[in-house]
């Protein structure tokens, strides 16, 4: 019985595997040729790899023992946390109405089109690029980091939430509308219950991602531990670099555990 079903399965996969259409084959070949070409442009050479790996080994040796004693780590990490919290809160608060406006099943075409454009704009630029611009606009410090990550949050939560709203069942909304409920009540009873679970997932992921990014925007002067890390790098203080990186990893891991707990509470 088992063997028979196994045989069936392997026949199917083989047939699938060996009989792609001509177009597909050409696409595969084209992708492969491109990759070889792209690899060539990176300037790989054996000599370079050998040297690089040598440096890498020296790096890793320089990391030990990691240095946690410096008093710069805690304030930097705390500032990263502040940036992550505030940007997640502000970003989500702004993303909710924008996502509702962007949902094509709730809004007229021109409204959703404008809101989608705003979301695309926020999504297109990496937080670090926004951070550079923000640093130029509001100066060095945490504010620039908050602005940068708020932009990213609007883009991320706005996009996913508007897609989640567009996928909800119209039947449930129809039923709530039929009771004579107002628009806001239709949102509260017809839309929110259908997207709440996914929304919590998006926000949890967003906070996680803001936490990781808040440790990075400091490299361009937008506050947080990133600045400390960058300067440690520049003065070749690799023990300190290792200490900071381990702290960041620890922070992100704590965040992931908290995330699981919060999702369970709201399930």
């Amino acid at each position: 019985m088992n063997v028979a079903s196994l045989a069936d399965k392997s026949i199917v996969t083989r047939a699938d595997f060996f009989a792609p259409s001509l177009g597909k084959r050409l696409a595969y070949v084209a992708v492969f040729v491109y990759l070889v070409y792209a690899a060539a442009t990176l300037g790989l050479s054996l000599d370079r790899i050998e040297k690089g790996v040598g440096y890498g080994v020296r790096f890793l040796a320089g990391f030990f023992p990691p240095n946690f004693t410096e008093t710069d780590i805690i304030p930097g990490l705390l500032e990263s946390l502040q940036i992550a919290f505030l940007s997640s809160l502000i970003g989500t608060a702004l993303a909710i109405p924008i996502a509702v406006l962007a949902a094509r099943n709730l809004m007229p075409v021109w409204v959703s089109w404008l809101a989608r454009l705003l979301i695309i704009f926020c999504r297109s630029f990496h937080p670090v690029i926004v951070a550079i611009i923000a640093v130029k606009a509001v100066g060095f410090g945490a504010l620039a980091g908050i602005i940068a990550l708020t932009f990213a949050s609007i883009g991320f939560v706005g996009k996913l939430l508007s897609e989640a709203i567009e996928e909800i069942s119209k039947k449930q909304i129809e039923a709530v509308r039929a009771t004579g409920a107002s628009f806001m009540n239709v949102i509260a009873y017809g839309v929110v219950p259908q997207v709440m679970n996914r929304f919590i997932g998006f926000v949890a992921y967003e906070t996680d991602s803001n936490l990781r990014n808040s440790t990075m925007v400091g490299v361009v002067g937008a506050g947080g531990i990133g600045g400390t890390l960058f300067s440690a790098f520049q003065r070749f203080d690799y023990n300190f670099v290792a200490g900071i990186i381990l702290c960041i990893i620890g922070l992100v891991m704590i965040g992931e555990v908290l995330q699981i707990y919060v999702k369970r509470v709201f399930r």
Partner: peptide
């Protein structure tokens, strides 16, 4: 609409 109740084919409960 408040004065008109409706029952649907696929129940349309908010699941």
């Amino acid at each position: 609409r408040r004065r008109i109740g409706m029952v649907f084919q696929e129940y349309n409960l908010v699941e």
